[in-house]
Design a protein around this nucleic acid. Structure first.
Lengths: 340, 340
DNA sequence: CTGTTAGCGCCTTCAT
DNA sequence: ATGAAGGCGCTAACAG
């Protein structure tokens, strides 16, 4: 028995008074409050989560759904771990907890979410890897479960989302390459049917057209987001005739594979093939030449995501819809195309 | 109101009867049970987690603590994601849920755990990255919170743990290399002060001594477990004089970095420097020559971990203590040392 | 076989 | 400023 009852008895106070003191409510004498807080700390009292949740009708917990077992979760994890870190900081200040809900890739995501919704273990959900048509969204809207999507989707409705600016990145990357004289730019998109793949490819297509560059569906590769996917991308580019002079990656995690495969072919990134990774990633600082990419402040993004998630319960109206901008950072992996 | 009360009213039954029917208790007529289950499905009834937890004194939820924000979490994540996937399968069959509890690297892990313990949101905890002296263990024992440690620790007591056979792997790897004629074997251990680093190094030292190989603390490198750490390992080996003829990695995720750095120096893994990665990882199938390592069935391990975790609540006595064996799988990255 | 009742731990209203 | 009491949703013991 480490509950509030024991604490109250220990202090020779009523449960109600102790509760008010702990929760910073009015109508408690300063002396009593102080005494209660001291005793609570001393006895290591923590409110029982279930009791509080039952009474208050909310759990002060937000769940982030993660897909496990899928190969794509792999490269993204470093990303998510940092994002989660920042989210949690924001939550912590608001007295909210973050739990990660692993959804088995083998399980039906709809069934998984429905279960979470019904259990009412979390007040809100953050879902990731949104699909172009995402039945999870319609379901959550219908069930009335507040949620934030990390990623847009074609699914209609006024639901809140935050997404990276894949379109803007593709646009800017193509512009940079075009300005240097590149005319054949290959693109790597995720193999998975996530929405961002389409945003990314659409952004690329539009930019290619705008700059009057070579337009050809064969220049767009769908590969797994991993080092090996990068190898395969380089492999594919090497096999193209005429060979593209630049390669645009949907994830910088593929770059080491690209570099390795180019090296094996006696080619050098930048000199023989310009490469733009998606996100500037300090973890890849070892790459030579340095990889051009787009700066992303994961801490700031995590804070924004955290705040949006916290706001879900508060203001269901006017949902967040935020495209997170990213700034191009040039590097030696991007140079003018080699002379033909 | 989607609770049991509404369901009972809808069926014109008492709450108690409905509850018994739903929970497969005795003393419910088959007809009633069928009717209740049908209505529950139709109305999408799911028991409220808090209500049930409060009443039963347990949450049927197990928490796995993850460190976020730390660089080491990075390479390990693919590992964990697969492990989690298998754990969850086991839990699911037992009606238990798995939640991941992200612990910020900036936060005090003891405080974090104490909080989780007090909240009683999970029935048991699985902790990872055990330290040589790990205050978390003493704390959890003292608080009476059932837990399973993924990793041993020098912390005394009869607490349950499951660990990979780092010692056996080091021993076998050294034996294989010695049999081929290697006499100078470099070792890479994690930079972080995790217990496995010491088990790993001790296993290596013992094996080196047993085989009468060159013994020198300078042959043991402490590096971050990442591709870049692998680069640094290769870099260090290249700088040693006399140069080691073999390199033993604590994680296969470092191998691409090793290969890349060797390639830059005009050296070839296997021919010029034998390399053994820790775990056979299909994800690294692209490496040439293929990387020698130790087979690990992550699904089986996940199942074992899941079962051990489920058993925590049941049988606090006789705690699991399991060293998970791994089998050596030779590959072309290991060859006799080059002629001097 | 079913209904009634008590109570898990907590917060909140109402009474004092 | 404090205590008493009710009830959040659920299950388990008991009564019928």
């Amino acid at each position: 028995m480490t509950g509030i009852k024991a604490l109250a008895r220990h202090l020779d106070l009523s449960i109600g008074t102790v509760s008010r003191a702990l929760n910073d409510k009015a109508d408690v004498s300063p002396a009593t409050r102080k005494r209660v807080l001291a005793a609570a700390r001393e006895l290591g009292y923590r409110p029982n989560h279930s009791g509080r949740a039952l009474r208050q009708g909310r759990t002060s917990t937000i769940g982030l759904v993660l897909e496990t077992g899928s190969p794509a979760s792999l490269a993204g994890d470093a990303f998510f771990m940092q994002l989660i870190d920042a989210m949690q900081e924001t939550f912590s200040a608001a007295g909210t907890d973050l739990v990660l809900l692993p959804c088995r890739s083998a399980d039906d995501p709809i069934e998984f979410l429905r279960r979470q919704v019904g259990r009412r273990m979390v007040d809100a959900l953050v879902i990731t890897a949104t699909r172009r048509q995402d039945p999870r969204i319609a379901m959550l809207v219908e069930e009335g479960m507040p949620f934030l999507a990390l990623g847009r989707s074609g699914t209609p409705g006024d639901w809140p989302w935050i997404d990276l600016d894949f379109e803007g990145v593709a646009d800017r990357a193509v512009a940079e390459l075009a300005a240097l004289g590149h005319r054949r730019i290959a693109l790597v998109a995720p193999r998975k049917e996530v929405n961002l793949a389409h945003v990314w490819m659409d952004g690329y297509r539009a930019a290619i057209r705008r700059h009057g560059l070579e337009e050809h569906e064969g220049l767009m590769l769908r590969l797994s987001v991993s080092e090996n996917g990068g190898r395969q991308a380089a492999e594919a580019v090497l096999g193209m005739d005429p060979r593209p002079t630049a390669l645009l990656l949907v994830s910088e995690m593929m770059a080491p594979g690209v570099y390795a495969r180019l090296g094996e072919a006696g080619l050098e990134p930048g000199r023989d093939l310009s490469v733009i990774g998606f996100r500037r990633n300090p973890q890849l600082g070892f790459l030579r030449p340095e990889l051009a990419g787009f700066a992303l402040d994961l801490r700031a993004l995590g804070t924004a995501v955290g705040e949006a998630a916290l706001g879900l319960a508060v203001s269901p109206a006017d949902p967040v819809r935020l495209v997170w901008p990213m700034d191009y950072v040039p590097a030696a992996s991007v140079r003018p195309p080699p002379a033909e």
